[in-house]
Design a protein around this nucleic acid. Sequence first.
DNA 1: ATTTCTATATTTAGTTC
DNA 2: TGAACTAAATATAGAAA
Lengths: 235, 235
Amino acid sequence: MARKKVQLQWIMNDTARRTTYKKRMKGLMKKVKELSILCGIEACAIVHSPYDPQPEVWPPPMETVRMIREFKCRPENDQSKKRLNQENYMRQRVAKAKDQLEKQQKKNRRIEMENLMYQCQAGEKGLQDMSIKDSSDLMWSIDDQLKAVGQKMEYFHHQAPQPGGAAAQAAVPVAQKTPLEVALESLENQMLMDVAPRGPDSLVTVGYPGSQDMMHPGPHGHYEDPSFWGPPFFT
Amino acid sequence: MARKKVQLQWIMNDTARRTTYKKRMKGLMKKVKELSILCGIEACAIVHSPYDPQPEVWPPPMETVRMIREFKCRPENDQSKKRLNQENYMRQRVAKAKDQLEKQQKKNRRIEMENLMYQCQAGEKGLQDMSIKDSSDLMWSIDDQLKAVGQKMEYFHHQAPQPGGAAAQAAVPVAQKTPLEVALESLENQMLMDVAPRGPDSLVTVGYPGSQDMMHPGPHGHYEDPSFWGPPFFT
DNA sequence: ATTTCTATATTTAGTTC
DNA sequence: TGAACTAAATATAGAAA
């Protein structure tokens, strides 16, 4: 970004969105290409959008189709079957989240110690502030996904129906628990929703009770919301 | 990059390559996620590598599989059938290349005019230098793909067999033609190779006669070389 | 190997033409 | 719409812990 830190949320302004799309699409494809070449590996990207009649891909179609074929065959192999399975995927996420949180907390402790050593006059208040703040990275990555959905819904309904929207509903209880509890709970909710039986096109609405009627089909009419499934720990 | 401008070529040093992979993979996935959210579109990326037992994907597997299904269904639609067809894809590339080259040349002319106006003492020599230099961007994007293949092959053969390697063979005649000829010729070669009938796993060797015996199966043993199919005009 | 820390390289938001 | 510019935000190579 430049000249302004852009929030990770759907861009309302139509022309700005289109411009950003054009720029970032180009940038993304370049990155995919660089990764493949620099590391000598297979990488592909597919992007559908209303701005291009055809999906944009890298590498060129035939190769992309081949990569995809291999990807889809993976479930046949014992090991990869695991990851393609949504339940296991989410379990892995939870495990990683716990790991990351532990590391974060160790780090927090170290920082706290250092602070104590350098400024012995600091009371317990300082410590408490920090333990909350330092886990916020973890929370944010989960929370911003929820917000992205909420904001978009609000826009399409001109802030009419729900005062506050689904995002607020999800975010409020969050603030009353410890970061650890919040993070794991969010993940575990995702996991449960994920494993729960459901019909097609109901992924999001299952997760956000009360918001079914607010959902719109998205720009393409066939994809709920990409932000919802975002991996919280790539951020 | 930082502290050093990295050339777009396979990284020989094993640890550096792995490190770069880890960093860039993370960055790439973040970019895909941002693009989807900011623009409210579908985007996915799949990366296979020896560094991870499973392919890395965004968004999570189920969604990725769904996107892929749609992508593969596209050929059924008249319009998208065109783009999935490799021949047409390459024709489009050639057309775009011509376009881009024309634009570049127009720009060159403008710059030349400006230069002339500001420094009338500049002789014809200056003009000629410029017309060659200014088209080099176009050439580079094609040429670096060839280099990437050549360099990698050389490495695996410890510069033994071919003195100079395939890259040199491909690059040398290039320097004797005009940028326009070079650019279009490269593209048209790609196109022809592409359309020519061939067995599986012979994509690259068809294009580089004399180098079949130098090809190694690549890190995965099932993918010739991602750099070969790179879109020359994303750079 | 992983994490952290910079200094630079690269990307891109906003603006202008 | 699109190309060009510019400043700010990010990404990341390389070093060091």
